[in-house]
C-alpha cells in the first residue's frame, strides 16, 4: 500500500507540474522554444509514466514489509522536523544538543554519560569546525545566544 501511495504522490506532483507548465508559453514570439516547452513536455511524459507506474504497482500489489521499523522511523523522522524548528528558534548548538540527547535517550537508554558526552561533543565540534575554523554559516536562532549561535 505504501508503495502505491508513494507512486500516487509522484503522479499527483507530476500532474500539478504539468498543469502549471501551461502558465508558460510553449514557443516565444519569434518561434523559439519558450519557458513552457520543457515543463509541458517533461510534465506530460511524467504524467503518463507515473500513471503507468501506479497501475503496475496496483497489479503487482504486495503486503508492506512487516519487519520494518516504522515506529522508530516515524519517531526519528518527527524529531528531525522538530530539530529544524528548534534550530531556527534557539540556534544550531542548542538545537543539535537537544536533538542528539533526545535521540540517544530513545535509542541508547540508560547510558547517560555516553549520551551526554556525545550530545555535548558533536555540537561543540561542529561549532568549532564550521563557525570558528572555517567561518561557515550556522543557524543563529531567534535569541542569538552568545557563543552558541
Amino acid at each position: 500500500m505504501i508503495k502505491i501511495a508513494s507512486g500516487a504522490v509522484f503522479l499527483a506532483a507530476s500532474v500539478a507540474y504539468f498543469v502549471m507548465g501551461f502558465n508558460y508559453s510553449f514557443y516565444t514570439s519569434d518561434g523559439r522554444l519558450g519557458a513552457g516547452f520543457f515543463p509541458r513536455v517533461v510534465g506530460g511524459v511524467l504524467v503518463v509514466l507515473t500513471l503507468l507506474n501506479v497501475l503496475m504497482d496496483l497489479r503487482a500489489r504486495q503486503a508492506d514489509e512487516a519487519n520494518a521499523y516504522w515506529k522508530d522511523l516515524g519517531i526519528i523522522g518527527a524529531l528531525m522536523f522538530a530539530f529544524v524548528f528548534v534550530m531556527q528558534l534557539l540556534g544550531a548548538v542548542p538545537g543539535m544538543f537537544l536533538f542528539i540527547l533526545v535521540v540517544l535517550h530513545l535509542l541508547n537508554p540508560g547510558r547517560w554519560v555516553t549520551n551526554v558526552g556525545v550530545a555535548v561533543g558533536i555540537p561543540l565540534f561542529i561549532h568549532l569546525l564550521f563557525r570558528v575554523w572555517l567561518n561557515a554559516s550556522l543557524p543563529i536562532g531567534r535569541f542569538e545566544i552568545p557563543f552558541l549561535s
Partner: peptide, 15 residues
Amino acid sequence: PYRILLPGIAVLCAV
C-alpha cells in the same frame, strides 16, 4: 554502534 552515529550524521546533514 550505529545508534550512536545516527544523530551525529543527521546533524551533519542538516548543518
